[in-house]
Design a protein around this nucleic acid. Structure first.
Length: 633
RNA sequence: GGUCCGGUAGCUCAGUUGGAUAGAGCAUCAGCCUUCUAAGCUGAGGGUCAUUGGUUCGAAUCCAAUCCGGAUCACCA
């Protein structure tokens, strides 16, 4: 899963070069290799020349040099000591000499401190990199690789509106899909809607009993919230009925089954499965209300899908698979007729795959849908963005698929993300502590409005421009807040932190972008084009990079690697952390050095290129997180 | 109880294919706007990397045990 550096065009083995002639992968090799890979390759070649021994990039470590030492990248000597039978410093001296002598285009100097070989990368290398890439809006992205991936995410229930937990799922799924695209994969974003079942019937029954024909239109309530309200009403009524039965002397467990509203709900589920027209009609009507509401929310938060699956269509899938499993003796039948799989040998339990009444359970549907996805799209990988509470379920799903010998079994991947908790603990719908998605978006946008008005920098904006800016900032803050944390970890949602627009936040990065754009507006665009090459080429003496200039190029150089790492780990937080680091570096640079009024024309062109490079990467990286960046703010 | 995941600064999080004195943001304190947007920059304080032992030139990172927290182990989805 981890990214392995070293796949650039530099010194490709002959066989691989030959391969490139005949495959469509050619383009992905056209991007220049990273400086880390360059250091590795040069080190390998130097070691071979010096000591006549062959090493691979795994035999030694290349790190970025710590700021307190002179140099840019560091080769750690210790792991070579055994093979070469020399002291770390002796190896370092020979290697450093050889590298600087034989690769002057890459290395300008070296020093050795306690077994660490610190290499200074030649300014010419950085300048070349800057000139070649600063204007490339596709910098770091890869050409199509012919692989197809499906990312299933969001997966809402049609009985209640989206909440904070769904937001993490939506942002994560969307972002991972975009990151995969940027790395050359063809991606199908899909969504399975849980639109049937007992929980859906609960809100239907409650509406029948309490609504008196009210609709979202008649009440002015957004459709998903409207239906969600009846789901709550069901639970209130149900609890009241159970309490009444219990106080009448009934056992609680019995009361929970005997409560009239629950019995009515169960009957409704049977009627639904039997296709009873008035139940189907009500179901369609209420679901359509929910979808109207979801559409508004999805559009607002920027979620989209290429393929929708509905559980009402897929819940019967997998039935024939049960029969196949019986034939293959993967499943077995118990005396009561129910069908199971024994996973105890794999450290799990027995798992039911078909009820005694012949109906299929959740996991069976999932097996069927997994196969359908594969057959419909021929996908190479199938990613499920699902909370870690379902780790066990997904493990079982994959295991069953394997045992059934399904061709797609190994392509299933559970992108398991952690729950979002509140500072007060977990969200609990029963205690009313669930943070509603629509409310949260409104609050973030309102906060953006308030901050913007306080600062008063965009007083000339039109109403439309202002509304767009508030959306950009509010949603940017929210998405960044949820995506900056490693997906697999449980995270805490702190309302105060989430509406902070300073520091490690989306608006901080957006602000950096707006500042750059402000400079670029002030500098005549044509002068950039006309003067850049001539000025910079004619004045090499002023081209000695200052520390912050170099630091910024070094950071920018790492973007392609970050994209690969984010893809390999399916982890947008890699990009969030990186872009923040880049923006921070730019802000230090910005404070220290003037761009428009630089010391010389050459420096001005250099810094303009740096600013453009930074803005392009910020824009590109933020786009992969689903965050827009403003021209002004 | 079985399985899995986690424990790093007051708070929220980086850092984990083993590398130099463990980093950010928030909060606290001290500075910086007649010069490209101060939603910014600079600096200070703040750590038993849960605990103990092991592996080795070197451990927050790998291994073992323990403590603490969470998830899961439904004829629910």
């Amino acid at each position: 899963m981890r990214f392995i550096p070293g796949s650039g065009y530099f010194h490709l083995p002959r066989s691989l070069n030959d391969k490139l002639q005949t495959t469509n992968l050619k383009l992905s090799y056209l991007c220049p290799m990273s400086i880390v890979s360059t250091v590795q390759q040069c080190t390998i070649e130097s070691l071979s020349a010096l000591f006549n021994q062959s090493f691979t990039e795994k035999d030694f470590q290349v790190n970025q040099t710590k700021p307190e030492f002179e140099g840019d990248y560091t080769v750690v000597m210790f792991s070579l000591v055994k093979a070469l039978k020399l002291s770390p410093d002796a190896i370092g001296t020979q290697l450093g000499d050889h590298l600087v002598k034989n690769y002057p285009q890459y290395f300008s100097a070296y020093n050795i401190i306690k077994g660490f070989l610190n290499l200074s990368v030649a300014d010419a290398y950085w300048l070349d990199l800057l000139q070649k890439n600063h204007n490339d809006i596709c910098y770091g992205k890869k050409a199509l690789n012919g692989k197809k991936v499906m990312v299933e995410y969001s997966s809402p229930n049609t009985n209640k509106p989206l909440h904070l937990g769904h937001l993490r799922n939506n942002f994560l799924g969307w972002s991972v899909a975009e990151i995969l695209k940027a790395n050359g994969y063809e991606v199908i974003k899909s969504c399975i809607v849980n639109d049937r079942g007992i929980h859906i019937c609960k809100s239907m029954i409650a509406w029948q009993q309490f609504a008196n024909g009210a609709t979202p239109q008649s009440t002015g309530i957004k459709g998903d919230h409207f239906v969600g309200d009846y789901y709550v009403k069901f639970n209130d009524a149900y609890k009241a009925e159970v309490d009444k039965l219990v106080s009448g002397g009934m056992d609680k467990a019995v009361a929970e089954k005997e409560a009239p509203i629950m019995k009515a709900t169960q009957q409704m589920l049977l009627d639904w499965e039997a296709g009873k027209p008035e139940v189907i009609e009500l179901w369609k009507k209420m679901n359509s209300w929910v979808y109207e509401g979801f559409d508004v929310t999805y559009k607002r938060i920027g979620t989209d899908f290429d393929k929708m699956y509905y559980e009402s269509d897929t819940y019967l899938l997998g039935k024939n698979i049960v029969q196949q499993g019986m034939d293959k003796k993967v499943f077995f039948q118990k005396e009561d007729g129910s069908i199971w799989i024994d996973l105890t040998a794999d450290g799990l339990d027995e798992k039911i795959v078909q009820r005694k009444d012949g109906t299929s359970v959740y996991i069976t549907q999932d097996i069927g849908l997994a196969l359908q996805k594969y057959e419909q799209y021929g996908i190479d990988q199938s990613i499920y963005v699902i909370g870690n509470e379902q780790n066990y379920h997904m493990k079982v799903l994959q295991l069953i698929c394997r045992k059934l010998g399904m061709p797609n079994a190994d392509n299933i991947h559970h992108l398991s993300y952690g729950m979002v908790e509140l500072t007060t603990g977990k969200m609990k719908s029963r205690e009313g502590t669930v943070v509603d998605a629509d409310d949260l978006v409104d609050e973030m946008v309102a906060t953006a409005k308030q901050h913007t008005e306080e600062l008063g920098k965009v007083k000339d904006f039109s109403e439309t421009e202002l509304a767009e800016l508030y959306d950009t900032l509010g949603l940017g803050a929210m998405k960044f807040y949820l995506l900056r944390v490693d997906p697999k970890k449980t995270m805490v949602f702190n309302p105060q932190d989430s509406i902070d627009f300073h520091g490690f936040t989306g608006p901080f990065i957006q602000y950096t972008h707006a500042r750059i754009k402000s400079i670029l507006r002030k500098v005549d665009g044509s002068s950039i084009m006309d003067n850049s090459k001539t000025a910079m080429n004619h004045d090499p003496s002023t081209m000695n990079l200052m520390p912050l200039e170099k630091e910024l190029i070094i950071a920018a150089e790492q973007y392609p690697l970050m994209l690969e790492q984010a893809c390999a780990e399916q982890n947008p937080s890699v990009i969030a952390n990186y872009i923040f680091q880049l923006a921070k570096t730019f802000n230090s640079f910005y404070t220290e050095h003037s761009i428009a009024n630089a010391e010389s024309e050459a420096k001005k062109q250099l810094r303009l290129q740096l600013a453009i490079f930074t803005a392009n990467i910020i824009q590109s990286g933020m786009q992969l997180l689903g965050i827009r960046v403003p021209e002004r703010m």
